[in-house]
Simulated assay, not measured.
Amino acid sequence: MKFRNKVDVSAPIDVVFMEVSDFPAIEKRAAKRGYDVQRLDVLREPGPGMVWDVSFEFRNNMREMEVELVELNAPDKMCVVSRSSSFAGSMIVDFLALSRTQTRVSLELELKAQNLTARLMLQSIKLMRSNLMNKLEGRMKGWARQIENSYRMSDVS
């Protein structure tokens, strides 16, 4: 099952890429949302091979997955894969400079079931697809506005 969306951000591509690849900030935001995030690798610089163990509650059950950064090509592309006992997934984020101050961010999420229970869960997710797409679009727009506001504030000072 694939989800695709894109958003235009009124900030330079380098600024947008830097925000998206700020992994310590992402870990903090995930923790605020109730996720338990543990970094497993020992890399000193962000790059392929970064790995996290992520635990969270979903449908009244604790879920665990391993998330790995497999590609980080500044400022053009980032790819993350995730694995759990039930699902395998990938997230590809592409960045395109539309102008010096405008960037298009394209996101593609793919989720694959690893067992029968997960296939049934994916079927129920497919029934909610339009609702989930609306939520994804809203989150991406909100995230874009945050980057734009942060960029404007840093540009003023």
Rank of each mutant, 00 (worst) to 15 (best):
S86Y: 08
G89E: 04
N60C: 09
E66G: 08
V51N: 07
S90D: 11
L98R: 15
G89K: 06
I92T: 15
P48S: 14
F87G: 04
E57Y: 00
L69F: 03
I92A: 02
P75Y: 04
A74S: 10
G89H: 03
V54F: 03
M50I: 11
M62I: 09
S82G: 13
E64F: 01
M62A: 07
I92E: 10
V93K: 01
L96T: 14
W52C: 06
L98Y: 09
M50Q: 09
A97K: 06
E57H: 09
F56K: 13
N61Q: 12
N61M: 11
V67D: 03
V93I: 15
I92W: 00
V81D: 00
M50F: 04
M91L: 15
K77T: 03
N73K: 13
N61K: 15
G49N: 07
L69Q: 01
D94R: 07
A88N: 09
L69C: 08
S85A: 13
A74N: 11
R59V: 06
F56H: 09
E64C: 11
A97I: 04
S86F: 08
V80D: 06
C79D: 04
W52P: 03
V80C: 09
N60Y: 08
V54Y: 00
R83H: 12
A74M: 07
S90L: 09
C79E: 12
D76S: 11
C79T: 08
E66A: 08
I92S: 05
N73S: 14
N60Q: 13
W52T: 00
S86V: 05
S86T: 08
D76G: 06
A88T: 08
F58S: 10
S90R: 14
V93T: 14
S85D: 12
F56A: 04
V81H: 07
G49R: 09
M62H: 08
S84N: 12
M78Y: 01
D76V: 00
S90A: 08
P75T: 02
V93S: 02
S55P: 07
R59G: 05
S55C: 11
F56Y: 15
A88I: 10
G89P: 06
M65K: 12
W52A: 01
E57A: 03
R63A: 12
S82A: 13
S86G: 07
L69T: 07
V70D: 03
E66T: 14
E57I: 01
S82D: 12
N73A: 12
G49D: 05
V67F: 04
E64W: 06
V51I: 08
L69A: 02
S84Q: 09
E66Q: 14
L72W: 00
D76N: 15
R59F: 05
D76M: 06
R59S: 12
E71H: 06
L96P: 02
V51K: 11
E57K: 15
E57Q: 07
A97E: 11
D53W: 14
A97L: 02
L72F: 02
